[in-house]
Design a protein around this nucleic acid. Structure first.
Lengths: 201, 201
DNA sequence: CGGTTTGTCAACACCGTGTTTGATAAATAA
DNA sequence: TTATTTATCAAACACGGTGTTGACAAACCG
């Protein structure tokens, strides 16, 4: 798993293919992108493409995995220093997204793959949440449904930010989302706050 | 817009093409499905396919639009009778999903298009929520972000249910999600319940 | 440096695409 | 029923993207 030396030619090939593909993805849907097109733009022979990827979707999956690994590394580096401050960690994540806006617009926006996006959010959410609940795992029956709700909600939340051109500050976004997440955890622990819903049954 | 009489032959053609396509979609990804394949399974000439759809994606979009119209009709029929009971409306929606499990697994599960799924949830959510807030629109600045969060959360919530084989009852699901939605609205109105988050800033 | 490995490339046969033709049959209107 | 319209089909078409082949050249290692 440790950095096995990669042939310089391979490095170059993968780099230009990824770059070409990303540029194309910004213009049109993946289903309309041909391998021929990717290769011409990158000035790489088509058979070389097939030596590394099976098709466009495979290439995208590999870009996604790389992104996932980058995020993971970023989080690991980070949480040793500021592990106690949830809000700060969350803010840093929004900063990370803004810094890497190009790839994030591709992978995290509406056009991206939702399953992958949920995977990212789970990664982040699990880290953040472990700081709050510690080992006191919430064992309520409905906890896993609330978890699914929250993770998907975070995806939509980030998408909204991206689609709005990231005008609001990372700090602002972090405050809202942390507030929401804490509120939901609280709801799960204590039930509906004022019996609003119970009264409606 | 009212039901212009459609040639019976057209009806049949579209029906078998859709059926063939859906069956294929259950087995593999849309990008791997060829038009030739769809037509052979449906025993329809390829040129006839092109008379109705431009490609697989166009066919899928039309199936989605039909589903959307069906849901809309279902809701309109329904909300005249029970318009006051949010929980009952929500339960009915989960019942609808379970009754139409085949198409819902295709369109609403992880493999489906997230943008479309959000459109569906907005439709449902807006109906339900108008019962609660009435014309008292929440005008807070962060309301639209909470809205995005909630709508996406509902998508994930339904997906989780579908992926688990819909074991839990529609009633059970409705209770949880209504509870969550009301909790979030409350949070938006009154801020964090116990100042948990404020203390952390 | 020289031998070996490995990545890249041009050329190949193949297959799905999208469109057009005219013939046929089914549906609709009178 | 008869006349007219309209949808489907088979066949054939050029086109373009696909995935695989063996030859060459660049990178790697001792």
């Amino acid at each position: 798993m440790a950095g096995e030396k990669i042939d310089r030619r391979v490095k170059y090939t993968k780099m230009v293919l990824e770059e070409s593909f990303i540029t194309l993805m910004e213009k049109k849907d993946i289903s309309k992108i041909t391998i021929k097109e990717i290769c011409e733009k990158a000035d790489i022979n088509r058979s070389t493409f097939y030596a590394h990827y099976s098709d466009q979707y495979d290439l995208l999956r590999k870009i996604e995995n790389k992104f996932l690994a980058d995020i993971q590394a970023y989080l690991e580096n980070f949480d040793k220093k500021y592990t106690e401050d949830i809000l700060l960690i969350t803010e840093k994540i929004f900063q990370y997204i803004r810094k890497n806006a190009r790839i994030c617009r591709l992978l995290l926006s509406e056009r991206g793959d939702f399953t992958f996006q949920k995977k990212i959010m789970k990664l982040v959410y699990d880290l953040i949440i472990s700081e709050i609940t510690g080992d006191n795992k919430i064992t309520k029956e409905d906890a896993e449904y609330v978890y699914s709700f929250t993770v998907s909600g975070c995806v939509g939340f980030v998408q909204k930010w991206l689609d709005d051109g990231m005008k609001k500050s990372p700090r602002y976004m972090a405050e809202i989302i942390v507030n929401l997440i804490l509120g939901l955890i609280n709801l799960l622990k204590n039930g509906a706050p004022e019996g609003q819903y119970a009264a409606k049954i």
